[in-house]
Structures are given as structure tokens and as C-alpha cells.
């Protein structure tokens, strides 16, 4: 086959994806950038390019506060999810006999809608919810606990549950790929189970951990459903503010600016994290 027809074939094969990405990612992004440079004048748009929106967003303490909180909550969700997922992935990859069954069980939450799962947590954590009723019935508390719902904790808990499979699967794959003789070699060279884990398994699964972290961290920063349903006023995140700009406040240019700033912040944190984690992984000897 000559090179030209190969190129043609490649172009043809990637055309649908290119078209799809072009229409649904690149074009909206360009529109978003354009909007962020315009100004909302009540019902009309002033299309004179200006950086006023950026100035407003960057100087507004509320934006900064929400942005930092979003990143911190997302980081907490990521840490909690990965920390809970790793042992499960480890168990399935190395100890479990019926791997397929376990993997199937892990995907079961996906069989119901995301919204329903968030509402389920609301039912569990609520004032008259499952948790409070059970603790009351057992006589462990005298009145319902109110710190369970409508705060950061509820957001972290709900999202950690929702993301679990996304963390388990990449980590499972990276553990599964480890040649068992490497662990035997570590043992043979005098490592106990913990040392083998820290010096061989962990560094060899860094890529899986990084992938899991990114898969969770990036969409969590932009999540607004969970914070609005279980977050209360303490659990509001940047995406809730963006939603307001595009909705009730009817200030699309500012909403576009906030979206772009959120994107940049997430990108920055993610890049720093990937570099940091890979370096750390390589330093384990």
C-alpha cells in the first residue's frame, strides 16, 4: 500500500471523530472565549472586546472563595475516592477468584441514574433519613444529627460513592498488569509484604493512580448538581455560580469568563499534580 492511500485512509477513518470534536468541543470553546470578551447590557450584548469581565472575576472575593473551595472539595473527593478504591482494586486484581463478577458488581451503581443516586444519599443523610432513624431507634442519639447533610462532607461522600468505579477500574488495570514474579523477586530480596507494596506495587501503579485522580478531579470541579442537591450553602461550588450567571443573573459574558477561569485553574492544578506525582513515583527506589 502506498503512503498516499494510507494517509487518505487515516484521514477518512478519523474524519467522524474530528468533525465531532470540532463541532462539540472546539466551536463551543471559541464561542465561550468570544462571549468572555463581550459585555452584557441588560438584554443586549455589547460586542466591543474588553477584559472587564476578567478584571471583575479576578477581583471578586466570592469568585476566588468559590474557586478555592471547589478545588479543595474536588481534591478531597479525589483523595477519599482513590484511597477507598485502591484496596478494592488491589483485592480484585490480586486476591479475588471471580474477577469478572466483582467488576460487574462494581458497575452496578451505574445501572441507576446519577440523580437518583444523589437523592438516595439525601434520603440516607437527611433529617428524617435512614441514618438518623437508625441511630435514634438504637438509642445512640436523642435528636437527629444535622451535620450529615447540606455541607461539604455530604458533597464529598456523595461524589466519592458516585466516582468509585472510575477510580477502581484504572487502578485495577495497572495492578493487574504487574508481573507477579516482580512481587516474588521483591520478597526473595528480603522485602516483607508492606515493603514490597511500597517499593514495587505502588510505583508500578502510579500511572493508574494518576489516571484515576484526573478522571475524578477534573469533572468534580465543574459539578453543580451534587453541590446544589446535598451541599447546602456551605457546599456551593464555582459551577453553581456559573450556572447562576447563565440563568437567573443573565450575564453570559461573566459566566463564560468564569468557565474559562475554572478550566484554566483545573488545568493548572492537574498539570502540577501529574508532574508532582510522576516525579514522586520515580523517586521510590
Amino acid at each position: 500500500m502506498n503512503l498516499r492511500s494510507e494517509t487518505a485512509k487515516g484521514t477518512a477513518l478519523s474524519a467522524p471523530a474530528t468533525l465531532y470534536v470540532g463541532l462539540l468541543v472546539a466551536a463551543p470553546l471559541i464561542i465561550l472565549i468570544a462571549y468572555s470578551l463581550w459585555t452584557q447590557t441588560y438584554v443586549d450584548l455589547d460586542r466591543t472586546p474588553t477584559l472587564a469581565n476578567y478584571r471583575e472575576a479576578l477581583t471578586d472575593p466570592l469568585v476566588r472563595h468559590l474557586m478555592i473551595r471547589s478545588i479543595l472539595i474536588s481534591a478531597a473527593v479525589t483523595v477519599v475516592t482513590v484511597a477507598l478504591a485502591y484496596p478494592i482494586a488491589y483485592f480484585i486484581a490480586l486476591k479475588a477468584k471471580k474477577k469478572t463478577l466483582w467488576l460487574l458488581l462494581i458497575t452496578i451503581p451505574f445501572w441507576s441514574s446519577y440523580l437518583l443516586r444523589v437523592f438516595a444519599w439525601k434520603l440516607i443523610l437527611g433529617f428524617n433519613g435512614v441514618m438518623n432513624s437508625a441511630l435514634l431507634a438504637l438509642g445512640l442519639i436523642d435528636e437527629p444529627l444535622t451535620f450529615l447533610l447540606y455541607n461539604e462532607f455530604a458533597v464529598v461522600l456523595t461524589l466519592a460513592h458516585a466516582w468509585a468505579p472510575f477510580a477502581i477500574l484504572p487502578i485495577f488495570v495497572s495492578i493487574q498488569k504487574i508481573d507477579p514474579s516482580l512481587l516474588e523477586a521483591a520478597t526473595d530480596l528480603g522485602s516483607n509484604k508492606l515493603e514490597s507494596f511500597l517499593r514495587v506495587t505502588l510505583p508500578l501503579t502510579t500511572q493508574g493512580i494518576i489516571a484515576a485522580c484526573l478522571i475524578i478531579f477534573i469533572p468534580t470541579v465543574g459539578d453543580y448538581v451534587t453541590p446544589s442537591l446535598v451541599g447546602g450553602s456551605d457546599g456551593k461550588m464555582i459551577a453553581n455560580l456559573i450556572q447562576v450567571q447563565f440563568g437567573a443573573a443573565n450575564n453570559w459574558p461573566l459566566g463564560a469568563t468564569l468557565s474559562l477561569l475554572a478550566m484554566l485553574s483545573v488545568g493548572f492544578v492537574a498539570i502540577v499534580f501529574v508532574i508532582g506525582a510522576s516525579t514522586l513515583g520515580r523517586r521510590i527506589r
Binding site: 508481573d179 514474579s181 516482580l182 516474588e184 523477586a185 521483591a186 520478597t187 526473595d188 530480596l189 528480603g190 522485602s191 516483607n192 514495587v200
Partner: peptide
Amino acid sequence: ANKRPTNMVFQSYAIF
């Protein structure tokens, strides 16, 4: 195995 006075060269070499 990690306490025995033996060491092994594995068939796959098991180089980390």
C-alpha cells in the same frame, strides 16, 4: 521466603 538465605534468578528475570 524473605527470611531465607537463598536468592533466585527468575525465568522471566523479574527486573523491576
